[in-house]
Design a protein around this nucleic acid. Sequence first.
DNA 1: TTTGTTTCTTGATATTTGTCAACGCCTTTC
DNA 2: GAAAGGCGTTGACAAATATCAAGAAACAAA
Lengths: 191, 191
Amino acid sequence: MYEQLKRSLQQHITLTDEEWDLCKHNFRPKRMLKRQFLLQEGDVCRELVFVEKGALYSYTLDLSGNKHVIRFAFDGWWMANLHSFFTGEPTRLNIEVLEDSELLMLDKKNHQILLEKIPAYERYHRIILQNAYVALQRRVENALGLTAEEKYERLIQESPAFLNRVPQNLIASYIGVSPETLSRVRGNYNR
Amino acid sequence: MYEQLKRSLQQHITLTDEEWDLCKHNFRPKRMLKRQFLLQEGDVCRELVFVEKGALYSYTLDLSGNKHVIRFAFDGWWMANLHSFFTGEPTRLNIEVLEDSELLMLDKKNHQILLEKIPAYERYHRIILQNAYVALQRRVENALGLTAEEKYERLIQESPAFLNRVPQNLIASYIGVSPETLSRVRGNYNR
DNA sequence: TTTGTTTCTTGATATTTGTCAACGCCTTTC
DNA sequence: GAAAGGCGTTGACAAATATCAAGAAACAAA
């Protein structure tokens, strides 16, 4: 149940057995089924979520009720609304389960404990934040000023795994085009 | 010369006098004039930049030579291409000086020293990365699926300071619309 | 001031993309 | 196995935005 988490930590830092034990016991395992909500608009995000196995996605709804996918999270990824988590303000995000999932939940108190007690844990978070920031900045580059076709090409290059695991209409929302436009781009693309 | 840096650190952590001394001496002050380049496409980003005073902006150039502004940095902000800085790969970004600036440069070796020697410094970086990540995610929300007018409205709400300090064509690029469209949006907006 | 450069505005037009609607396919559910 | 709902495709059209071009305004330099 904790293999992915252990792997993720070991990828960036080294922990003693005691530290790993302490770490592990601060997480709460949770199973969720497809279409369940982990967080809904207006809620406060009280836990960081580590995906052991499965898939989640987060999105906002605009005034016309259109979904805007913010991001996906698969095996070994973190998911949360950091803004709500750190400030305690209600979130504008929804987080929904895309595939039946095994999750590890970490609430704020336990996160603080780990940050205080295990310096390497704080290092781990600095590093994954760095990586997340780099990836997100790349996403901004790809979102601004590209045509629908270019956005799709970049997605294929940079995140081909998404295509097999995510319905096409969510992919469309993720790159910021309508489902119809994405369908047409794909049509042209195959010839 | 180090006031802004000190203020930024103190905002998130507490340092002893010795720690602050150690910290300070790892930065290299540098003055730069408007239109100078801090980093050019193809370079490796070897230093983190802290803006004591002034303004910078980073951008990419696409195949047609169009500028896409990634971000701005004003007094008290950090600027770098983290991807290039951490991996050592050449950058796709250009960083240019927007107003004559006083900068504090921190190379990778010194950054590592501070991370190792001062735990609070690592905490500081974790926290500002958190904040930067939250801000950037908000930017993605605003970039995807909004009309030109909505994007401009959100910029006014969320980053009004930009408007006084940045030429309009760079603002346009930053929110991902053409300068002409932004000009028209502003025209309508004032009536 | 004069000159030159950059930035901003405005108009005309072309292109891209979104929207609405219809249909077919596939999966799920009863 | 029939029915229902979700998802992807396609077409016609409308709306938003980019592009091109010209000129005005703002700013900087001589």
